[in-house]
Design a protein around this nucleic acid. Structure first.
Lengths: 146, 146
DNA sequence: CATCTGACTTGACGTTGTCAAATCTAGGAG
DNA sequence: CTCCTAGATTTGACAACGTCAAGTCAGATG
């Protein structure tokens, strides 16, 4: 129920990083690559369930944590609430609609970290700057006017 | 158990915005002003409890939501997890330590919103750009070396 | 001081994330 | 190919965070 080439690619990428290509890892990473976009842990669990491949919730939590540490996936900073993960190959930021809460990727000017440094003195060494753009998406603006 | 002048100021600021100066609002907002920094709802509840002023958790949730809509306090974007609130008078960003998770304010270059606009085309109208700087604070760096 | 509307309170509940202990398996050694 | 073992998965229970609805209360106005 998951695209075979996505699973193959997932398996390869896992091994390239020295990670054991276990079933949950291949499935979760393959699914994230196949679907694209931003997904919560429980969303992934439900998606796998729907496709007839039940995976324990805890396993998905373990997988996303491991994959994130290896840099294969990233956690999208979108403010408080559930964590959203995405399989992404390059550094970017996010736009969040205040109405529908939809998250959209926004390219980073530099494309590498850190793309911004604090003005003046920071309280530590900065290695990454995540930007969250907030506003109202065009779809919601259209709905508001009707 | 809360600084009287903070409570007075809180009461005044609430009325200035046309908000009813109810007990929970004055207490929560006064406490946030007195303490400074970033605090979760449950942290505020515990703080009030410790000071002998029990306030229902739901009331604090209501208060922070109302105050945020009025612009008296802001919710600090610090990634997934619990929401952190702060009584702040000017727009700024945050530095989050990867080790101790401590949140520190970082001044905004412009000091007004939106201080950044997405490169190229955004999927909507941007009215605000929150930046989260991540890294390791100097205190944790010192601990790591010992 | 009376009134009324908005705010507070209460209790219960759904979701998200974490922990520890037992079981299993991917991948290398023989 | 088979065995072995460190590492990963699974299970169940639990804690933290946030939300909902219905009933009660009190701040602001006249």
């Amino acid at each position: 129920m998951i695209d075979q080439s996505s699973l193959e690619t997932a398996r390869k990428f896992l091994k390239d990083r020295g990670l054991r290509a276990t079933n949950p890892r291949v499935l979760v990473y393959g699914l994230l690559r196949e679907m694209g976009g931003h997904h919560s842990v429980d969303g992934l669990v439900a998606q796998l369930e729907n496709r007839g491949i039940p995976v324990p919730r805890m396993s998905v939590y373990n997988v996303v944590t491991d994959l994130q540490h290896s840099g294969l996936i990233m956690c999208a900073d979108c403010g408080p609430g559930r964590a959203l993960y995405e399989a992404s190959d390059e550094w970017h930021h996010h736009f969040v609609c205040r109405i529908c809460m939809e998250v959209t990727d926004v390219p980073c000017i530099l494309g590498r970290k850190p793309c911004l440094v604090p003005p003046g003195s920071a309280p530590g060494t900065v290695d990454e700057a995540q930007v969250i753009f907030r506003g109202v998406c065009y779809a919601c603006q259209a709905k508001l006017q009707s």
